[in-house]
């Protein structure tokens, strides 16, 4: 039986928009429509889509924060909003931009309090904490009040808090947002280890394509509240993520360059954007071609943005 199941799930919000001092208009917004999918145990699932697509709403329905307007949800055999407390013991949740730890307390105190809240037996707590301290390198700052931690340290602390009671499922909302490259890598490695060694199922929302490439065995893409892609990362990249953009800075502004295998999509003074298909050519060949036609000062390669990928899928799947 799948660990997570959704069937025909919809969520409407009623928003009040102020129209004048005391008058308000009621507007119904459909955040999620007819969502059906299931997730097997042991998956690392990337749940992606542009802002406002319905990602957070879905995660909130799976964790018991919101009740859907229609449809059926089952997480670990439980109905999240009806069996909220039983579910809470079996899941770990981390919202990258929210502080779950007690702001004014040292990290170690927060973890100790959570142990009691989640009724983790003392010996198992000691064991889990020891492995989390090692994996997340918590020791240098474990006695520091949370408000004094850097973002990267705090995220590691939050991950430890989410893992303390050995959850079966980890829900992560933008876990790497705002982190530097090293910190991002550390978080990803930790998640991979937790998945391999403890069999934790992970569902994460992210804007970071690298998160998806390095972590996810399966991805779901949602846009305007509908599921528009369900499959693995490679298939997605092969189909939609094959276009790269080479950005070149020239010594002097000039008209759009004509180079084999690329087409100029934008010109801004001495800077030009050249799109190319990875299957047909590569950045080095393209750069060499540019160098024969103009004096090159600098160049960078832009990875496709997740929003671009989504837009392309959306255009293709639209009826």
């Amino acid at each position: 039986m799948p660990l997570i199941e959704l069937e025909g799930v919809a969520k409407d919000f009623v928003v009040h928009r102020s129209a004048g001092l005391l008058r308000r208009d009621r507007i119904t917004v459909q955040a999620v429509r007819d969502l059906t999918f299931s997730v097997e145990r042991g998956t690392i699932l990337g749940y992606i889509g542009p802002n406002g697509a319905g990602k957070s709403t879905t995660v909130k329905m799976l964790t018991g924060i919101l009740v859907p307007t229609a449809g059926r949800v089952s997480v670990g055999g439980l109905v999240p909003w009806d069996e909220r407390i039983a579910l809470a013991r079996r899941i770990g949740v981390m919202f990258g931009q929210r502080v779950q730890l007690w702001w004014d307390l040292p990290l170690v105190d927060s973890l100790e309090l959570l142990r009691h809240m989640y009724r983790v037996p003392a010996d198992r707590y000691r064991h889990t904490l020891a492995s989390l301290r090692e994996a997340l390198e918590l020791d240098p700052f474990i006695r520091t009040p949370v408000r004094q931690l850097s973002l990267g340290q705090r995220i590691r602390g939050e991950l430890a808090a989410a893992m303390l009671h050995d959850p079966e499922i980890l829900f992560l909302d933008e876990p790497t947002i705002g982190l530097d490259v090293v910190a991002k890598q550390r978080v990803r490695e930790f998640l991979i280890r937790a998945n391999r060694e403890r069999g934790v199922t992970v569902m994460l929302t992210t804007h970071d394509l690298a998160d998806i490439e390095r972590l996810c065995s399966r991805i779901l893409i949602i846009d305007h509240g509908r599921l528009i892609y369900d499959g693995d990362v490679n298939a997605l990249k092969e189909r939609y993520g094959t276009e790269r953009v080479l950005v070149v800075d020239l010594e002097e502004p000039q008209g759009p360059l004509e180079v084999e295998g690329g087409r100029v999509i934008k010109v801004e003074g001495p800077r030009q954007w050249i799109a190319f298909e990875r299957a047909r050519t590569n950045a080095a060949q393209l750069a060499a071609a540019v160098a024969t036609r103009a004096n090159l000062r600098d160049l960078t390669v832009e990875e496709p943005e997740i929003d671009d990928v989504v837009r392309r899928i959306y255009l293709e799947t639209r009826p």
Binding site: T63, I65, R84, I85, A88, V93, F95, R98, V99, M117
Partner: peptide
């Protein structure tokens, strides 16, 4: 307002 009440709903306590 800041959405932090959400965090209370994912913990095993009233």
């Amino acid at each position: 307002r800041d959405g932090n009440f959400d965090l209370m709903l994912v913990r095993p306590k009233g």
